[in-house]
Amino acid sequence: MLWLLLLQVLASCLWLGHSEVVMPFASCPQFFYGGTPPNNVLEPKKPAWICQRYRNSYHFATLYDRDGRIPVYSAYIYQPGSGIGPESVWFVEPQLISKNNLNEMERESVLIDEHKFTLDQIKDSQAVREDYDKMTGLSRGHLSPCGHLYSKESKMATFTLTNIVPQDTSLNNGQWNIYELKTMHEKSKGCTTTYVITGAVPGNTYVVEGRVNRPSHIWSAACCLVGTQPKKAWGAIAGNDQNKVENLSLGELEDRLRGLYGGRTVTLFNNACPRQ
């Protein structure tokens, strides 16, 4: 019996050391208030919990759907800074490719030229640049937006396709952009720390020959702390086929998501965050 226990312990250590895509956000709980991610109602059939790592640092956290090839949500701390990211550079996630020990986002060309992966291996469980190049009427919609993070490295890190969904172009450039730039700025005034989770509800349609899910809705939730105490919270949601955003309380957003997820109760934040 002892040798069986030792084998189990060894297997666990080997698994945990394999990559950063492991059980829920063990390496990056700091992006969730109280270290509490959303409950498991949002989890897809084939989830990947990604601590988004770039240049040896974690910048945000993402729950990824390997089947739909889209992120379900990204969580981060709102720290807006000036400057924009380099849209000509897009990363993919080597941790979603089997049998490797790479734990940091990388460009497709580097994975192919230096690490000898094939494009088909990369494409197996994630979207790639050519997928988004083929889309019409849809743009690369950030869940963790470049403009909500402060450092050059954090801004760069948002340009990974594991943080991107096919978003209606008019929405991405219109009312959702206003929410990201203006509404968030206004609502977060006076907050010491603002935790944000932005997500996408998987839809019933796929684009790029069935490779990438087109979300039915885009949503975002925030919990504002003054000092160390949560004082207010809010949410927003938009259908991914029109240029319109609804501003909601956190409780209203969770109720709306409950309806979109088959009537199952959705909890986005630690219960200390106000629902009204």
Rank of each mutant, 00 (worst) to 15 (best):
Y54R: 09
C51N: 03
S98D: 15
E108Y: 07
I112W: 08
P80M: 02
V72Q: 03
Y76G: 06
Y73Q: 00
L63N: 02
E93C: 06
M105D: 13
P71D: 02
Q79P: 03
N103I: 13
S98W: 12
Q79T: 15
N101S: 14
P47M: 10
W90F: 11
V110Q: 13
D67C: 01
N101C: 10
G81K: 02
L102N: 10
L63G: 11
P94E: 04
V110P: 00
Q95M: 15
R107S: 10
L63V: 00
E104Y: 04
S88V: 10
E104C: 09
R55E: 15
H59R: 03
I97G: 07
Y78C: 09
Y54P: 02
A61W: 07
Y58P: 02
A48Y: 07
D65R: 02
W49M: 11
L111P: 03
L63D: 02
Y54I: 05
I77C: 09
L111K: 01
E87K: 15
Y54K: 11
A48W: 01
E106H: 12
T62K: 03
E104M: 11
R107Y: 09
S74G: 08
R69G: 01
G85R: 13
Y58H: 15
R66Q: 15
F91C: 08
S82K: 14
Y54Q: 06
